[in-house]
Design a protein around this nucleic acid. Sequence first.
DNA 1: CTTTCCTGTTACCATACGTTAAGGCCATTT
DNA 2: AAATGGCCTTAACGTATGGTAACAGGAAAG
Lengths: 193, 193
Amino acid sequence: MVDLLRSHIQKRVNISDEEFARCRTFFSHKKLRKKQYWLQEGDVCRSIGFVLKGCLRNYTVDAKGEEHIIQFAIEDWWVSDIYSFLSGTPSKEFIDALEDSDLLVLDRSSRDAMLDAVPKMERFFRLLLEANLVATRRRVASLISDSAEQRYLDFLKSYPNLVERVPLNQIASFLGITPQSLSRIRKELSEKR
Amino acid sequence: MVDLLRSHIQKRVNISDEEFARCRTFFSHKKLRKKQYWLQEGDVCRSIGFVLKGCLRNYTVDAKGEEHIIQFAIEDWWVSDIYSFLSGTPSKEFIDALEDSDLLVLDRSSRDAMLDAVPKMERFFRLLLEANLVATRRRVASLISDSAEQRYLDFLKSYPNLVERVPLNQIASFLGITPQSLSRIRKELSEKR
DNA sequence: CTTTCCTGTTACCATACGTTAAGGCCATTT
DNA sequence: AAATGGCCTTAACGTATGGTAACAGGAAAG
């Protein structure tokens, strides 16, 4: 299981067994059952989580009580409210588990200690953030440029594995539309092709 | 002018005169006249730019020829197609100047050399990326949650200086709506309040 | 086994935003 | 002075998506 983290890091920086062993000591384990919260609005997000198993979502709830999914996280992804984590201010987001999940958790002081203990990880996090920023910018471009139908088709292409695991109403929320609209879009697509 | 870069870096990491002087050698200057391109679709984005003066925009052009602004950049901000820059693949974006502008430019090999020469800059870029990611995630949250009117009001609050410098049709494009819609929204707002 | 909840679908109407077209204002060019 | 082009606005109409409501199938809970 922990091998997943090792290969995740190795994808970006070369790390020795000894260095990885040192890194490993800064993480702790966390199990979440389906529907269990990891972060609730008003809490400070004190750690970032690396998903070993399962699926989580990061979302806001607006004044009408509607949920808006900012991010999904499955195996090999990280999850957190990065703003609250970095600033130490209370979060406006929720994080909970869509499936029984298994995380490796790194709190703020552990991360800082790790960066001191294994300087190479500084580069790892930079590269991770770069990849994240690229993906998030893509999503912005898609949201300001594309129709809901196009965004759904892109989602199918980009995350084929997620479609099978996540309920459609959750995907609609991620796309920024209602479940009813997504249902209509799916109907039209199936009629056309 | 270069002091702007110094204080920009200093905001995130402590850097000595000597270290800054070393950093400085990796940058080159670039002047752009209004409407001049810095990046065109199909080109590889070989450098990132730090804006000393002026205003630039980063945008895509869709199949209908419509422009969609992904990012504005004014003084003290960075501009690039980070995906093309990192991957070395041809860009699908344009970058041009909305005003006569003055950039400090860092190409890929210079950046890598700088990171070797001044390891502290590794942390600087990590922190810069973190801030960028936070802002971009905010924008995603706003695009999937808020009405165009709300997004416009948020824009006014977040970037009051930009509103005065950038034409309204450009702001509409940034918000993901047409100039006509923005005009209508402004009218309704002025009638209400 | 029955009940309840969760998910997905459909339909009807409402609304926000897009499209097309036109006109006016102002700065720049000729 | 006249002409041009960029920018903003307005209006009438079209379309995509939202809101509300109802229903059905399947999973989960009792």
